[in-house]
Structure formats: structure tokens, C-alpha cells
Nucleic acid binder design. Structure first.
Lengths: 210, 210
DNA sequence: TGTACATCAGTGAACGCGCGTTCACTGATGTAC
DNA sequence: TGTACATCAGTGAACGCGCGTTCACTGATGTAC
């Protein structure tokens, strides 16, 4: 029973079989990635935070990259859910639904810049992570569906894909510029909601006259 | 005279006073950042590549971060120059000038993804690098001026700034999605030039009727 | 042109550090009878 | 309900590694006289 790490309130059980270590490690790594950046975490430090020996993580993860992938995977789940919820809060086919998805995306980046960077910078050496790629495509799918609804076209229409990609590029760039502090001067005082609506309207245009 | 490192063809001089080490270190680090990512380089490895002892770099740079900053600084110079050249190749106030700047930006990211990531991810711990920030703002200035010319407004007009920032966000996001491989399915076969023209027109609109 | 000397860019050995990963182990837990 | 046992999630010590940085040093270079 270490005094250094905060005692786990939920699963005290026995200090030995700790029962929740995998989830607690992911959370510890999430915090470390947030604090020190995607490359600034160490397995040892994560174990320390979870109040566990430095060998313990290897009972749950094959190696260091696998832990990072687990964090990214969990983050993509949360991102997708919040995008879906944002869309669901507005009428199907509305511009607001599209803008809300974008806002959810930007909010995620702002709330967890380190994890956001991790998710999108994980390309190197992690090409063989089909589940991550698939989860990313699911997120994009949310945008595609909203764009399709707005345009009154099927989701696999090339125009829909193109417009959805434009929206994604914009929101993605805005997110990165924001968390990297490059947007301070220009975009510090803007109203995000109006901004995203303006962009959505610009990319998707007015609804088909009908 | 090490056989492992390629002998410097330009400045053989004496193997001792090597004369060009600073530049050669920056180049070595550039390559390492390209190969292993912004955090994957080490001072030791860079020295090895330059055919020099691991202590030598400290005659030219205070510490590790300073080397990275030097690489970023040099990269920002090149980026600005290529954006300016791209703009200069088209009529002042044309949509093509704007699109060409965007293309230069995307091309830079594609040609040097590691360095591109370095330049924009250097925020953490490097806040006190006013020269880097200034060079970044110079790059943005190229976009702002082109947008101002297109819209027929002064560069410090709020609308110009807003539209220039939109363009930047889009191109920045597109660049990142591209180098992170997220755009494969959607944007693999697009014509970049048409794409950037479409975006530029969408954001800046048709020229003021005059 | 020759000599004395300050400068300065290199060397190479050494330091302490934290890390990723492995290993033999231990003791709590759940299950079969 | 009680007991024997397989399982499995932990321990903690140890390994080798490469790194960032420092240090006293050396020898080439440029300059003043």
C-alpha cells in the first residue's frame, strides 16, 4: 500500500490483485501523453502512477507501442461518440448538425491536445493497426453522413465524399493551429459556433432548392 | 578520416577544423527528424552522421532543444520562400496566386513530413522562441497579402484576416491528413490544383464586382 | 618573412540517468471434486 | 462446506543500452609584432 499514489477508491479489493490495472494504466498514460506529449511518456512512469511495479504493465500489454495504441483506440471511441451526440442534437440534414460535429471535433482537440496529437501522429510504425484505422474511418463516417443528409445525396456519392473531406480538412487544421498556438492572434476571439456554421455553409452551400 | 561517414566533398580542409559543422549538423538532424520523427533524433546520432564526436555539437548549440529550433527555423525560411515564389508566379489578386500558395504549403508537408510536424508541434516547451513565432507569422503573412489582393482590401482588414485564416486552416488540415495517411481513401486521386482552386474560390468568393 | 601567442573547434573518456524488457518468484483467486 | 490445485496478476531485482552533457585536453588557425 503505497502512500505516494492515491489509493484507488473504486477497486480496493486486495492491494495485490488489483483488478483494474489495464484501465488504470491507460488512464495514467493518457495523462502522461497530455502532460509530456505523445513521445514523452514511459512505461515505467505509467506503472509508477498506477502504484505498481515497472514489470506489471507487461501482463496487460505486449510492449510500449501497444499501450499507446490502446490509448488512441479509447480516445477515438470517445471522439466518435461525442461527434454522434453533437449531430443528434440537431435536425437531420441541417447545417447546424454539420457545424456541431465540427465543434465537437475542435472541442476534443482543445480538451485533450496531447491525445489528439497522438491519435493523428501515430502513423509511423503503427501502419499495422487496422482497428485504429477503422475507428478513424468511423469518425469520418459521421461527417460523411451529415454531409449526405444536407446535400440530399447518398453517402457514397463522390461529391459528398469530397465535401465531407473539405470540412474535415478545415476542422482538422483549425484544431491543430489552435492547440499549437498558431491561431492566437487571428482566431482568439472568434465565436466558434458562428465560424463553423460559416464554414459549413461555404462548403455545403444552401440546400438543394426543394 | 572515418570511412563510415561519407567524406565531405565541399569542405575537406583539414579533418580537424571542419569548418562547416553547424550546417552539417542541422542537415543531419533534418534527415533524422524525417526518418524517425521529431522526437526520434538524438544529438549523439546526429554527431555520428556528421562524423564528429558526440561532444562536438555543444560547441555550436547550447543543448538538444536548440538544435531542433535551428532546424525548424531553417525550414520555416524555406517554406516562406517557396510560398512567396508560388504567389509571384501568378497575377496579383488572382485566385491562382492563392491556390498556388496553398499548393506550395501542401507540397512542403509532403516533401518533408517530419520537419513539417516538427515546425508545428514545437509548441511544447519552446514558447520562448520569438524568432520562430515571427517566422511563422511571416508565412501566414504571405497568405494574408494574397487574400487582401484578391478581396481588394487592406491586409489588416478583419475580413481579410478571417478569410486568410480559413484558407490556412484548410490547407494545414489537408497537409496533416495527407502526411498522416488519413486521406488515402478520399483524397488519393484528386487533382490538387483543382482542389485548391475550388477551396480558394469558396473561401474568397468571386472578386468584388468592379 | 618569422615567431609568439590567443583563440577556438575539435577529441575522447567519463558521469549518472532512466528506460524497456526479462526473469524467477509469490501469493491471492476461482474451480472441481 | 472443505480441500487440492491450476491459473494468473502481481513483485522486485537485474540486464544492457543509448543518451545528454561535462571536462580537461589538443592541435590547427589567424593575428600582432
Amino acid at each position: 500500500m503505497s502512500d505516494e499514489a492515491p489509493a484507488p477508491a473504486v477497486t480496493p479489493k486486495s492491494a495485490y490483485h488489483h483488478g483494474d490495472l489495464r484501465a488504470q494504466l491507460i488512464e495514467a498514460v493518457r495523462e502522461l501523453v497530455e502532460t509530456h506529449g505523445p513521445d514523452g511518456f514511459s512505461v515505467a512512469e505509467a506503472a509508477r502512477r498506477a502504484g505498481v511495479s515497472s514489470a506489471a504493465p507487461y501482463k496487460h500489454f505486449k510492449d510500449r507501442p501497444e499501450i499507446l495504441r490502446a490509448v488512441a483506440s479509447e480516445a477515438l471511441d470517445r471522439l466518435r461518440i461525442s461527434m454522434e451526440q453533437a449531430a443528434a442534437a440537431h435536425p437531420v440534414g441541417s447545417l447546424e448538425a454539420v457545424a456541431a460535429i465540427g465543434l465537437a471535433y475542435v472541442d476534443f482537440a482543445r480538451a485533450e491536445p496531447g491525445v489528439f496529437r497522438l491519435v493523428f501522429g501515430l502513423t509511423e510504425g503503427h501502419e499495422n493497426a487496422p482497428d485504429l484505422q477503422q475507428k478513424g474511418e468511423c469518425c469520418f463516417g459521421v461527417v460523411v453522413r451529415a454531409a449526405a443528409n444536407r446535400l440530399g445525396l447518398p453517402p457514397d456519392d463522390p461529391l459528398v465524399m469530397r465535401r465531407a473531406y473539405m470540412l474535415w480538412s478545415f476542422v482538422h487544421g483549425h484544431s491543430f493551429l489552435h492547440i499549437d498556438g498558431k491561431a492566437r492572434v487571428v482566431a482568439e476571439n472568434i465565436d466558434e459556433w458562428l465560424f463553423l456554421n460559416e464554414i459549413s455553409r461555404g462548403v455545403l452551400g444552401t440546400p438543394p432548392a426543394a
